[in-house]
Design a binder for these strands. Sequence first.
RNA 1: CGGGGUGUGGCUCAGUCUGGUAGAGCACAGCGUUCGGGUCGCUGGGGUCGUGAGUUCGAAUCUCGCCACCCCGACCA
Length: 578
Amino acid sequence: MKFSKILIPTLKEPPTEAHTASHRLMLRAGMIRPLGAGIYTWLPLGLRVLRKVEAIVREEMDAAGAQEVLMPAVQPAELWRESGRWDHYGKELLRLTDRHDREFCFGPTHEEVITDLARRELKSYRQLPINFYQIQTKFRDEIRPRFGIMRGREFLMKDAYSFDMDEASLEESYRAMYEAYNRIFRRCGLRFRPVEADTGTIGGSFSHEFHVLAASGEDGIASCSQCDYAANLEKASSAPLPPLDFSDLPMRRVETPGKKTIQAVSEFLGMRVEALVKSLVVETPNGPFLLLLRGDHELNPIKAAAALGVAQVVIPDPARGAELTGGIPIGFLGPVGTTLPVVADEALAGLNGFACGANAADAHLTGVRWERDLPKPRYADLRTVLAGDPCPRCNGGQLSLDRGIEVGHVFKLGDKYSKSMGIVVLDQEGRERTPIMGCYGIGVSRIVAAAIEQNHDANGIIWPVALAPFEVEILLANPNEPEAVRTAETLYRELRARGLAVLLDDRDDRLGIKFKDADLLGCPVRLVAGGRALKEGKVEIQTRRGGDAVQAPLAEAVAVTLARLEGCDGRDGQEMSA
RNA sequence: CGGGGUGUGGCUCAGUCUGGUAGAGCACAGCGUUCGGGUCGCUGGGGUCGUGAGUUCGAAUCUCGCCACCCCGACCA
């Protein structure tokens, strides 16, 4: 492709709304343009990358035995009423009405449609196991779309749905997808990690998320230094912490005027934060609870909700909090003598001689011991793990924390949809049975943004070879010099003959502009045809990812370029998986 | 939804406080110059100042309503 014949509207300055690297760079490199909040047009350069991701996903899904289908983007409301999600999905579901006042939605996901297909077409155990996938535009009316393509409202997603007769078979289907996902992300040249995930309110037995590791990731990931354990911070747990005993003196009341925070109390009493217990009042559908955590630990609301058996826990604002505690100000709450039901984090089981609020304004208690000063509470896992916590799986491993961008999710659904929507097949004995399902998503468009988050520098994008819109960019140093033009055209032809996608910057512009744009677009290998090198009959060849520029004789240029591309691959994809 | 912010040529912004002829840089078109890291100069085209109402002799500027977008908190690929 010649630069003069393709629309690549690069920007010297990014629009103000873009703050994250991938969003800025995609706009600056002319890959995308916004049309509204969270909706984008893919321009030729961006689309080339998107198609590359799509092709990798398609190849690996096919190889894993899944069958491609394409389901409607617009779906009738009746299906969603049948599964119960028309009322429960909430405002994220974009609802439409047709000319006959019939209700539809723009599909945010396709469990209902695939289940409907399955109940019509699947009749016998002989047809199972079976796995359907599609690569489709979805729409989720996100509360707050942000980060450009990363969290758009409209996005391209690969979703797959498996149907199996029994748990053992589902396990195999799940495993096949898990492995296909590892291959997909590895082929995309991404540094990623599969992690155990919270299954959320949908339930289901088992779930893994695939995260691209990047400092700007929205999710926290804990992983073990020694074994395979890795989990979303929402779910990650720790092995029991070593017991701590700070004092065997009698419990004592201390005046602590105005010392409301753990930090302030710790300084005032001269005690480590680990020796303090913080008491949080939370509101739930089952009423208020007092939750206890070690001073340096943070509440994990998702775990808390699970432990209390409620859909959600809400941390009230101070005014409401005081109301719930009967007037005791936040900051001085404590478990001794409280009237609220108490649940303590497991880390407190081995903690004794601690300090906590006195359940009275401007006072704390020190030297508090379980059983002596207050009854043993109910214990549950309530906290978010910290770096350095002991691994829950192995002996001696420590957890470390990373940020990740969720690009894939594999999920065992069980019979949630197959039962409610009535899929029935006959088994070997001729009995009616309900198949169980798995679902498997990949954020295809999100991968493009995630790849940039992970692969860029101050000057622009640095594409992994597998995703690059062009493997090679040739800069024509001087379009008015016949010798330079001939050289560029020759290289262009020969490299394309080797099956490479090549971008030839033939614009009538200064070389400086072409260098800047080439850095921005991030093709893995860059050649300069003409200029200094050509005076010696040579071509300049450079790798975008920090390689030194070399000069090669014209006759060797293709071979050197190919070797450089090989070198790029070596530095790219890295499986961080088990 | 709650809180904060911004809307002025395609982009980045000044002008708004203190009402009085709509500006700059980049981008775009033409000419010249330069030619290995966004050269320099001249000329030119392009703006209902988000939108509706109000105040005023006069509104980008003041008042009120609305809309859009961005940023910070609870969901998800």
